[in-house]
Amino acid sequence: MATTEAQIERVRELVAAIPPGRVATYGDIAAAANLSTPRTVGWIMRTDSADLPWHRVLRADGRPAPHLAGRQLSRLAAEGCPIVDDRVDLSRARFDFDCGRNELNSG
């Protein structure tokens, strides 16, 4: 099944909503966007994320992709993201899209 423009825009909105110092996994974004697989998020991020905080999206184990590791971890560290052994501590840094949405809507 082809990825729709609406799905691409939804993923872009979700990635843009991740605040500095926080992260989300490809799976988190897929679930929030009602996509069937995190791979779709990966494809969208590879093709349409130059203007997004791409560095805030990680693999399920909290590690960046090997080819981006240095740059990505450096950017996350500068934002105050907790990093241990080249891995983001997801228990402390994972962004909850539902809570984030509620905070945005309540202000």
Rank of each mutant, 00 (worst) to 15 (best):
C99S: 15
L68E: 13
V57N: 04
A60E: 15
N105W: 06
L90K: 08
A78H: 05
Y26C: 04
I18Q: 00
V15Q: 02
T37I: 01
M1C: 10
G70W: 00
V57Y: 01
E79Q: 08
T4F: 07
R22S: 11
A65N: 09
L14F: 03
D96M: 11
N105G: 14
R39P: 01
D28T: 10
S49E: 05
S106M: 06
T3V: 14
S91Q: 15
N105V: 15
P66K: 07
R94L: 14
A69Q: 14
A2T: 12
A6Y: 03
R22I: 03
T40F: 00
A65M: 01
V23W: 03
P82C: 12
A24Q: 05
R39G: 15
G100I: 10
G42Q: 05
A93E: 07
C99W: 13
A30S: 13
R22P: 03
A16L: 07
D86N: 14
W43R: 10
W54E: 12
M45N: 04
I29E: 03
S74V: 01
A69S: 11
T25E: 05
R101H: 08
G21D: 05
D28L: 03
L90M: 00
P82W: 09
A6M: 03
Q7S: 10
T4E: 08
V41H: 07
V15G: 03
V41A: 06
A6H: 12
R56G: 01
H67W: 11
Q7F: 01
S74H: 04
P53K: 09
